[in-house]
Nucleic acid binder design. Structure first.
Lengths: 329, 329
DNA sequence: CTTTCTTATGCTCAAGATTAGCATAATCAC
DNA sequence: GTGATTATGCTAATCTTGAGCATAAGAAAG
């Protein structure tokens, strides 16, 4: 196993520089579009690439979460609601910035917010499908997949052995819903990691990936991000898509009162799928997730809708109150 | 974004020592008992308390996971199978070891293994319910809950305001399945955190918790652990209990061939619940999780059982192959 | 070798939850 | 008003689940 040359176990540890970045995927849904808070400094530090709000962990931060909150609220001038830790990334070679004598860890967080009018200077809200265009199936199978699929198949065929080819085939089928497998909206990270591995994510070339062909990228279609931020974003989307099914987190993204269609559109925006309207409503109703405010909302382009609000009591009543996805096929 | 120490702003960060510990919850199930790999050095470093295997992140570790693997395999002389990251803990005040000029992060991992005959010196496998006796409902409601419940109620009553009392009451009901709420086997961490907060976990006093009464602990019944290890273990148990429902991870804990009852007992050990036998078998069968090896196992104390093995193909066929828990009531 | 215990398996019934639609009610844009 | 659009109510057919009954096949005790 690896030991620093100087060490005698179990004792004095070899110190080297570790810096810890707290990085946030801040999500809001506006106009039926899922959006992430993006910091785009013109600085060289990100190579002009889009970045997630982040900042170093400091001594003054009592908890990791409070540190994150401080950074994001300073950068975005927005108050965060729900926050959860996603994952800690620390691969030595997965960022352009190689530090031979130290190490960078990024602790990723997911935060849910409601988009307020004015984002702070040099921050903006961006549609998250800008970074993952293959993830939006709301208007059917995304066309970009037609361009990706042959590349994936090429990678399968390029496998060094029969066995490896089979493994690769299974991987792309499961991840991208090919060869009869069903598209699974939660496999966001798996898909991104696969594209990175194959060399179809711009970041892989920047990091000096051995595989893939730099020119044959899909950069103009899918926006890359700085450092490992796109990976963190993928993790956040995946987590959120999973979580809405068994925790009432969507309501953190809704205004205090809303209609069932608005709720459905928000869920659809997050999941990247169309849902069956009547079944969605029945689900919401029978789970007791909402209660009527008594108001009606007109101007929806049709019959006026009942206005509802989140019903706090479900939290006590149900072990896993969430929105199963009655997918419209 | 992260910057190496030598680089100039945009934000010259206050440098301070961060050391990163990789800590593993290594789980095996033997004799229908869920067990964790424990390191118990007689050293002062842990105050003689039980500890999870862990070690500092080092420069030589290419990825966090490979670093963890190296440490655990060195300490336990055991090969790890499945590994997943759990959570990164970094609260400044949640450990006895206060470092005024620095900070300790623990990155917790869950690993699944099969217990091999000989554990390495000063490591051992311990029943995880030793640390969480209230989590084992296989023989009915654990008696320790009768002693805990009045303490929980006392904490509710001690709330400073009506509102706070209501909040507290909801919290204990949901977490511990009181007042009509159902016991949820996944809320392991929530329960531990609550006990810590109330001052019913020995670690809270060690860390200098403001609440609670040191003598009135339950230390002889529930074993504490060093640093934040019990918190990490709780996180691991919770994650595993959730994961078996939608990923075929239990099979990592089973021998290559086994009977359905063995499988059921393993799941029960993990979940801390008794399951309905016939329904459990129907579930396993209809999901296509196992296939017959052709062999029969006699000597089970009854009719011989068919021997089965895990069926790899489910991974491709089903989006979420796992063992829903048909609880026996 | 018979009885009794224990585990393995097959099956069934009823209650609930889901899938996929049909049909009708209100507004909105012209 | 007409047609388009959205809101809601309802239903039939399937599936899934929770709870058990009943039978089969070894093991242990006598």
């Amino acid at each position: 196993m690896s030991q620093p040359a100087t060490q005698e176990p179990p004792a004095p540890r070899a110190e080297f520089a570790v810096s810890v970045d707290l990085t946030a995927v801040v999500v809001a849904v506006t106009d039926d579009q899922p959006r992430v808070l993006i910091v785009r400094p013109a600085e060289a530090s990100t190579g002009g690439l889009d970045a997630l709000p982040s900042g170093p962990l400091e001594l003054g931060h009592r908890t990791l979460e409070s540190g994150l909150r401080a950074w994001v609220e300073a950068q975005a001038r927005a108050k965060l609601g729900y926050i959860e830790q996603l994952y800690t990334f620390g691969d030595r070679d997965r960022t352009a910035l190689k530090v031979p004598t130290g190490r960078i860890l990024s602790i990723g967080y997911l935060a849910l917010a409601r988009e307020t009018g004015a984002a702070a200077a040099n921050t903006s809200w961006q549609d998250w499908y800008r970074y993952f265009p293959w993830e939006d199936w709301r208007r059917g199978r995304p066309p970009i997949l037609d361009r990706l699929e042959p590349r994936l198949r090429g990678w399968v065929a390029a496998g060094p052995s029969r066995g490896e080819q089979t493994t690769r085939k299974t991987r792309i089928s499961v991840a991208f819903g090919l060869d009869g497998a069903r598209w699974s909206e939660e496999r966001v990270l798996e898909r991104y990691e696969l594209l990175y591995e194959i060399g179809l994510a711009a970041e892989a070339h920047r990091d000096g990936s051995p595989t893939g062909d730099p020119e044959s990228d899909v950069p103009t279609e899918a926006q890359p991000m700085t450092a490992d931020h796109r990976r963190i974003l993928a993790t956040g989307i995946a987590r959120l898509r999973g979580k809405i099914k068994y925790r009432p987190v969507v309501f953190e993204l809704m205004p205090p009162a809303f209609t069932l269609l608005q709720l459905q559109r928000t869920v659809e925006a997050l999941a990247g799928l169309r849902l069956h309207k009547q079944n969605f409503r029945r689900l919401v109703a029978q789970q007791g997730l909402v209660e009527e405010t008594g108001g009606m909302v007109t101007g929806t382009g049709g019959r006026p809708a009942r206005e509802v609000r989140f019903r706090q009591e479900v939290l006590i009543e149900r072990p896993a109150p969430g929105l199963r996805l009655p997918i419209a096929r």
